[in-house]
Design a protein around this nucleic acid. Structure first.
Lengths: 357, 357
DNA sequence: TCTGGCACTCTGCCTTCCGGAGTGCCAGCC
DNA sequence: GGCTGGCACTCCGGAAGGCAGAGTGCCAGA
């Protein structure tokens, strides 16, 4: 509201709403967020001073609260109720008032141990998503290591029938994609071996998006009679690569939605619906920053069904660079420091596991 | 109740509760089930005669209802409320009063068309489960074609490094499993080719459980120096086969749980939790009869969280025999004829799609 | 600038109170 | 003997009212 009334101020002050907040007001906001996250109930001035040593009286806190409300950081559900943080309030809390809470050593050991039991990529992802859901007691999302950022470990060609090949693409993240190739004519063993060798020689180790470029001239290296076959194989390969909409995710912890009790039953339906839309989740994960953790709060999530939730996401990878994202979705009223700690820790360990395998 | 009072009768009459029900009583039960499924509210005698042409007065229906209640087919939530069917009532309805409702021609076309767009096995399963959830507006579960009942289409060996192989197993249902093999020593190209050829020659087309038997003597056909390598490969292969706990399922439609409104919010949590336990779902699917549709109602499902739900499941397969199961989970108060029709139709078409690919 | 005090407001909960729907039973009718 | 109309009874569920508690805003004073 007050923002609407002084548009000029916003133009000249890049942090218009932060400057006037002195230390104590920030402390009050921090306390409000913490208490509200803990109790799920609007927090009043009296309860605040009792639970936190703010060193001032409830009346003073009330003044600060009125100021915070004017600035849009907190709001009252009704007159004469306590205050609850707004999205803007959570944002300030996350940006300036909260420290990521690191996992304890035993927790880290447990994470590591749990993830190390995985037998293949599917299992790694499945274990990760479950772990994350358990740790945060929220809904966890893990994206499979994306094809686009992986590299070719191996390409295999198998003749199922003389004119029908199976193409298998194996990436460095352990992902395997296979497709049938219908060939125009029969394929000899020598051609098959030759093609296999060349494919691996030229494309092995390449990042997947670069593969088409690298293999562009491949047909030229074969005799005219063989080119249609080579082209058919390449076409299927490129198609497989292009199908990055094949990006898959895995979900867990939807039962945790029911914990957000009280008012949530009505809100839980749109959330469940949104979660079923893999496209939506993929887009949200996609918007995660390349480095560092991304926290989106309430209406910062543009998708309708989810704008009373928050999402904490981060990239993970087998090396320096991230190959996919993972994250957690919960109510805006969530334990941000704890959630961020869990997400960060899990991402780090999945990365390690992937690098080792 | 009355059952408890005449234990003798039960001993001599195999259908103690069915015989005394004349046609009209069955019609009343059918009408109650239909109305209750439609309205979600206890149905009273007056409403019944209004909505169904039973040809008798409410008073008569009341007598029948009292009898049905004595027999345990229906119950009253409270004195002076309408009646709702019990699990036993639904059971009788499903067994004797309901006809599976076939899909309409346009619906069948839509199903077929939707499933035909699938590119690989993952996609087939994903599309199937979504389709089923949409058609029935309930929670759908589809099991991946099980390894145990499939046959070997191809086994591929790839040398990633001289001493590290990748083993890829492709089944006739299009499923691909891959594992790393650490070899005791370096593997030559000739040995690799030889081994690959023998593996496929001997095991190709076999049902997976028979593979270990068929390949048992394989190492004997190699020179002593090569045997450790062959054994290592076989060990990994057998391990992969044995890991039928790798049976996977896919879920969709959990958002539909929220439709079971009113009283359900409290019940939805255990259901969601149960659905996250893949083991539970796999066991339930596993209990599906080999042929024909299985309907389990309420407490007939032994798993706690799900005993106020019903499950309709059926096997599907690429040929005569079923390779996996699929089904639907919803409230006991569900449209059984419609659900059964949808489940049957979807299973049939997935089978066809799998057979074609 | 902070504080204690005070009047005011609003929610949440509990109780009470009906209307409506449905039942069970009974006497009469075919 | 089975069906029917009538009648008294029960119980749920929503509406209305009342009350305690928590919280606020504001003001005057330190």
């Amino acid at each position: 509201m007050s923002d609407e009334n002084k548009p000029d101020a916003r133009l000249f002050d890049t942090r218009p709403s932060v400057r006037p907040l002195d230390e104590r007001r920030l402390a009050v906001l921090r306390a409000i967020v913490q208490d509200y996250v803990g109790t799920e109930e609007p927090v009043g001035s009296k309860a605040l001073v009792e639970r936190h040593s703010l060193g001032v009286s409830p009346a003073t806190v009330r003044n600060d609260m009125a100021a915070l409300e004017d600035e849009g950081y907190i709001q009252q559900p009704h007159t004469s109720a306590g205050r609850i943080p707004t999205d803007k309030g959570y944002r300030l809390f996350v940006d300036r008032l909260a420290e990521v809470k690191p996992m304890s050593a035993p927790e880290r050991r447990a994470i590591r141990h749990f993830l190390e039991g995985a037998v293949d990529l599917d299992d790694v992802v499945a274990r990760t998503v479950r772990l994350l859901a358990q740790l945060t007691r929220q809904v966890a999302v893990v994206q499979y290591p994306s094809l686009t950022r992986s590299t070719v470990r191996h390409i295999e060609l198998v003749a199922l029938t003389p004119a029908k090949l199976m193409l298998v693409l194996i990436t460095n993240t352990g992902r395997v994609e296979q497709r049938m190739v219908d060939c125009p004519g029969s394929v000899g063993e020598t051609l098959l071996g030759d093609l296999r060798a060349k494919l691996n020689g030229m494309a092995g180790g390449c990042r997947l998006p670069e593969v088409p470029v690298v293999l562009e001239d491949l047909p030229a290296g074969f005799e005219a009679a063989e080119r249609p076959i080579v082209s058919a194989v390449l076409a299927t390969l490129f198609e497989t690569l292009a199908e990055q909409n094949e990006e898959r995710i895995m979900l867990a912890g939807t039962a945790n939605l029911t914990r957000f009790g009280h008012d949530f039953p009505l809100t839980v339906q749109p959330v469940l619906e949104a979660l079923e839309e893999q496209v939506v989740l993929l887009r949200l994960l996609g918007e995660t920053a390349e480095s560092g953790m991304t926290v989106r709060i309430g209406h910062e999530i543009s998708y309708e069904g989810l704008n009373s939730t928050s999402m904490v996401s981060v990239g993970y990878g087998s090396g320096d660079q991230s190959v996919a994202k993972l994250g957690v979705i919960g109510p805006t009223r969530m334990d941000y420091p704890g959630t961020m700690g869990a997400v960060r820790a899990v991402a780090r360990y999945v990365g390690q596991i992937l690098a080792e395998s």
